[in-house]
Amino acid sequence: MNNRFIRLLFAFIVIFIGVILVLQNLEVIDMDMNGIWPYAYSTLFIIFGLKWFIDDLRNRGGSWIFGSFLFVFGSLLLIGELGFIRFNFDDIFKLWPLLIVYIGFSIIGKPKRKKNFKFVIDTDDKKETYRDTMKKHGNRFSVGDHQFTEPNWKVEPMNLHNAAGDYYIDFSKAYIPEKETPISINSWAGDIQILMPENVACRIEATVKAGEVNIMGQTSEGINRTLYYESEDYQDATRKLTINLKLKAGSVRVDKV
């Protein structure tokens, strides 16, 4: 959360309390501070909850889980103080079913914004900069299977998104240029199968929210599984593939041929 926002909020609260106390001492107003406090901390929970939630949506830190929980909790406290429902601070344990809701959303995951990564690729006459928003290999979310199995198909930087469907990529049949080529696949549901030739250096990171990952014989299955693989010659190789795979539900398998 933004430190400036916290300081300003705290400053306004102190100023507000000070003004209320001065007016009460001058008998301008007659107010019970014990009666104000429940409204004050309920409102604080709502404000902080919204701030955390919005910051997370805008990729500026924060947490949508804690933000939404504080917002719901603060709102219920405020509604309870107003007399519409019976809810007080001790009733926080009644909100435990929200944990089940959060677990479900964490498995699905939230859509991520497009990142502005740059890939610098050397050519004979100049350096060309490719961004991961290029349209050559379809960055739009789609439904269906994708296969890269044509003889001598040319490998280029890819940033592939799929709502549901399978990927089958055979790099042993591809023309792989003498440079580092980034490959990114992000899918909600489906299977990803990749065949990697022995003589091509690669670095692979695969994450599955629910399912199985198998990379060059390394296996892991269950919830929130990640495997990382880097070939021995990756750092020194001029021709290499940098592959990032993210899957909500399904399986990832990468084999050498």
Rank of each mutant, 00 (worst) to 15 (best):
R4Q: 11
F5A: 13
G18T: 00
G18M: 05
Q24L: 05
I29G: 01
D30M: 03
M33D: 03
N34S: 12
I36C: 08
Y41W: 15
T43K: 04
F48K: 02
G49A: 06
F53T: 15
D56H: 09
L57I: 14
R58S: 09
W64K: 02
W64S: 01
I65C: 04
S68F: 09
L77C: 06
L78D: 11
L78R: 03
G80T: 06
L82C: 06
K94S: 08
L95H: 06
I100M: 15
I103P: 05
K115H: 07
K118G: 07
K118Q: 15
V120R: 10
V120L: 12
I121S: 04
D124M: 10
T129S: 04
T133C: 01
M134I: 12
H137Q: 11
S142P: 00
G144V: 07
D145Q: 05
P157D: 00
N159W: 05
D166E: 02
I169E: 04
A174R: 02
E178T: 05
K179N: 06
K179H: 01
E180F: 00
P182Y: 00
P182F: 00
I183K: 00
I192L: 01
L195S: 14
E198N: 08
N199Y: 10
V200K: 01
V200T: 13
A201M: 01
A206W: 10
V208S: 11
V208R: 05
G211Y: 02
N214V: 07
N214S: 14
G217Y: 08
Q218R: 11
S220N: 14
E221R: 11
Y228G: 00
Y228C: 08
E230M: 09
Y234P: 00
R239M: 00
L241F: 08
L241W: 03
T242Y: 08
T242R: 14
L247W: 10
A249K: 01
V252E: 05
V252M: 09
V254E: 02
D255F: 07
D255C: 07
D255I: 13
K256T: 13
V257N: 14
